[in-house]
Amino acid sequence: MTSCSPTLEPPSPSRIPAHHVPIIPPPPLPPGPQDLAFSPPLGSLQAPIPPPPPLPPSPPAMGTAPPHVFGLEKSQLLKEALEKAGPVPKGREDVKRLLKLRKDRFRSDLCWILFCADLPSLIQEGPQCGLVALWMAGTLLSPPSGIPLERLVQVATERGYTAQGEMFSVADMGRLAQETLDCQTELLCGGLGGPNRDLVLQHLVTGHPLLIPYDEDFNHEPCQRKGHKAHWAVSAGVLLGVQSVPSLGYTEDPELPGLFHPVPGIPCQPPLLPEEGSPGAVYLLSKQGKSWHYQLWDYNQVRDSNLQLTDFSPSRATDGRAYVVPAGGVQAGLCGQALLLRPRVSSH
């Protein structure tokens, strides 16, 4: 295993008062149709019957709450997009949608097993993609209420990890996660290939989140821009293409033959991981702060993007804003690195 796990001890907490940035809740669902009042007959002296008050909005179904949007009060465009977006789909439903839309992308000679943990969505404001990814990951590590994003921003700023929400150091992200989420972290170095590949896949199969820096393309997928489009994503699941599905603990999807899911509450036999030389057999189920939908990314594509983060964006270097970049630059802080997060094991 190629990994580096430096001591990530946070400094003593600062006494600077918290700076609260409001998270505006999404707009309510439109009310149901109103009952129409009957018109009085001609010649009647009775006043028209007023219509009844509008019915209250129906409560959203469990697990389908609309996404949180950070900075919603500042963006009419975000408001309109949110109103049209509808509820956030769960991971399984989103993956099935992707599989139906892009059948040609997934090998028909393999059986597919989906391991996924549901993540909420949060739309970032400004260069806060890393902190938004950490916030989403935190919902799998902390109590259901999670840790407010403004708390992550506050602590990261107080510790000197960021100036505006940007995070150019995986090591700093690990320290921040330990302090705010009280979780275990493991810093991977040397890329997502080689011995680290099986470590990452086994981590995702168990349902734990992974934070990955990469270069973001126009469609949010990984690309190679030498770090000029550096971005963060959180992965909380994996789609594995296998020759055969273990007999214990899996069920085939009723809508998509050839797609299998672990049965909740039943111990399942771990599948044989695809070999590293098998193309198109491993896809990461990922989210990032510019969309509330899941995406499926080819593992090799993510690995290659993560391994070429070397330069600071020229456009950022000349925009007149301050950024916190570690000694050694983007290459020292992000290149070939990722962060594994696990709940802290109780000693009691």
Rank of each mutant, 00 (worst) to 15 (best):
S278P: 11
E276Y: 12
S286Y: 12
I266Q: 11
L259G: 06
S286W: 08
P267A: 03
S305M: 02
P264K: 12
I266S: 05
T310C: 15
D311T: 14
S286E: 07
K287H: 00
Q308H: 10
Q308N: 13
S313G: 08
D304E: 13
G277T: 06
H293L: 06
Q269H: 11
P254R: 11
D311H: 03
P270L: 07
W292I: 07
N300V: 15
T310W: 13
G280H: 07
Q243V: 12
Q301N: 06
S244H: 10
Y250S: 07
S313A: 07
G265L: 03
G258V: 01
F312P: 01
K290P: 08
G277P: 14
L307S: 14
P264R: 12
F260Q: 01
F260L: 04
Q308S: 09
P270I: 10
F260R: 00
V263M: 10
G277W: 10
D304Q: 09
P246D: 02
Y294C: 13
C268T: 08
G289N: 01
F260A: 01
L285A: 15
I266M: 10
K287Q: 00
Y299G: 01
Y250K: 08
Q269F: 13
L273A: 01
D253V: 01
P271T: 04
P279D: 10
V282C: 00
G289R: 02
H293K: 15
L272E: 14
L284H: 06
V245M: 14
V242P: 00
P274F: 02
P264C: 10
S313L: 04
G258S: 12
P264M: 05
L273K: 06
I266E: 11
P271N: 03
P267H: 04
L273W: 11
L259P: 00
L273I: 13
K287M: 06
L273F: 01
P262I: 04
Q288W: 06
